[in-house]
Design a protein around this nucleic acid. Sequence first.
DNA 1: GCCGGAAGAC
DNA 2: GTCTTCCGGC
Length: 622
Amino acid sequence: MKTPGDTGFTFPDWAYKPESSPGSRQIQLWHFILELLRKEEYHDVIAWQGDYGEFVIKEPEEVARLWGARKCKPQMNYDKLSRALRYYYNKRILHKTKGKRFTYKFNFNKLVLVNYPFIDMGSAGSGVPQSAPPVPSGVSTHFRFPPSTPSDVLSPSEELRSPGVFSAVPRRIARGSVSDCSDGTSTNSELEETGIAPGDDRPADRAFRNLLHPRLSHDSLFRVYGAPPNPTGLPRSGPLAPPHRVHPESLSPFPLSPLPGPGGLLVPALSPALSMTPTSHMPYTPSPSLSPMLGSHFSFNPEDMKRYLQAHTQSVYNYHLSPRAFLHYPKIVIPQPQRPDKGLGGPAGMGPHLSSHPLHHQAEESHLSPFKFKLQPPPLGRKQREGPNPAGAGHAPNSGSATASFSYSREPGSASNSASSGMMTNNSTPAGPPKIKVEPISDMESEEEVEVTNISEEEHEDDECDVFSPPHPNGGLAPPPNHDRMTDDDDLEEDVFKTPAAPTSGVGANLLGLKAEPRELNLGQGAPISPGGTHCIPLKLRFKRRWSEDQRMEAGTEEAEDKKSRAEREEITQEVEPKLGKENGDRKSPDTLAAPLGTGQRRVSSELQRATAQLSLENNIF
DNA sequence: GCCGGAAGAC
DNA sequence: GTCTTCCGGC
């Protein structure tokens, strides 16, 4: 087991600061918890422990007391506090580490992904982080999350900024060390009283003020917000140490170090997935408090980035995001779930292969797409999860069908891939492909937008589906090192917090495979390569799709993607045509697309060639 | 100890 | 929206 001491995970400073709770007028409990966790003074009360993001409340009543003090709720006790913590379960901010008393775990995925939609890979290490929940270690180079330039900060996502982000500063100042509860209980000054330098928070205030300044630099951000100089010169020890001060053995996953990059910023535009502009595709915002903090920096090394990206990728699944949510960062390739046949070891860069430059992954099939994403509602309550479907026995409340179906959304009336996949799975193989929930895309969403929910995963997750399901036995993937990841039904959620697990070919691969392994996706959710492969996609179609996908990937643009969709539609049309021809000769009806392929493969073949040629032309244009 | 519903405060 | 409070159940 990793220990907080030997693994470092740097939570961004904001995470520990009440100001960074944009959605709330007051400090939120999870912030407070982080705050305590970062203070060594409280390590006897609460501390990181065990896995990535896991912490144990050593003195529940004391924590409750502190919380109560902070909130001016003298009657607070652990029972109430724990209720509040449970309240986070559904929000996926926290979850309980089962079997361990007073032990909870942060869902880092949630925190980071939502708070750091913009990854900054630019300049080298300036900066710094703060504390460190246990996490797999990493090395050198880093990238940072939030926007580093004013434009980054203010522009595309300006709307994103929670109203409270900046206004919180004065508020906090006013609150100041609000400590005066009528009952005389010291409140949030308590931390300061106990040796926490008052200035500890103040730099943050400055940071926020600085954020408002258009010329704020990365470094200044780091300095003012990320890592105030340690006046004592004493490095913080343990996981809480800022990366730049972290001892090598600390192995913070997010240490500082330059990452070669083009001028380096991954501007918001690069993260359409997490765009939260009014036109964005995030109908569901899990928590206002998790709004992006645009002013802090978060460092990652390449491996961490991979993990992050992988986690993000997972989150695409976890949160039922559209594949568009996959990050698309130049020079950074999301660590793709290793396919079984690759024999790659552990997930998420725990293996040596991930120690190399992230770019090496470009050689792999991974290819990210600037997917937009759409979040789905939080997981069902326990009763809902466990009640109707105990043991996670393949229950998919929202799934309309047990049949795998993957669908690209498209113009109304046009062919549907779900239909296509329906055809592909027309044999309805018993052990068939993972069930994919396909949701209609709203008009507001882009045509290319895809909403895919892996039902199979939901089954594993009891509908929480927060993270990858554990490596599939058939996937050939070594299970993640985390000892308890598979022990709890919600541990899957933890995956994002830990080293993300590589999805299996049957599940994750399908998801990640939206870009990386489209063939598998398109060909029936991995069914084709299953030992008992029973999909009925004509070989030519498979090749063609593969080829098309490759072409598209080369293009690497949305246009290409559009073309792919077009191509896909065309394929579908082709596939369906025979059937349609029999029925009414009209290909307008999407319903008919669900019909089995039937005969006419020869015709399909010829049309396939035609379509291929056309696609080729289209691709050549770009 | 933990869970989660319900009601209510802010 | 985020807890706080209460409480019955496991």
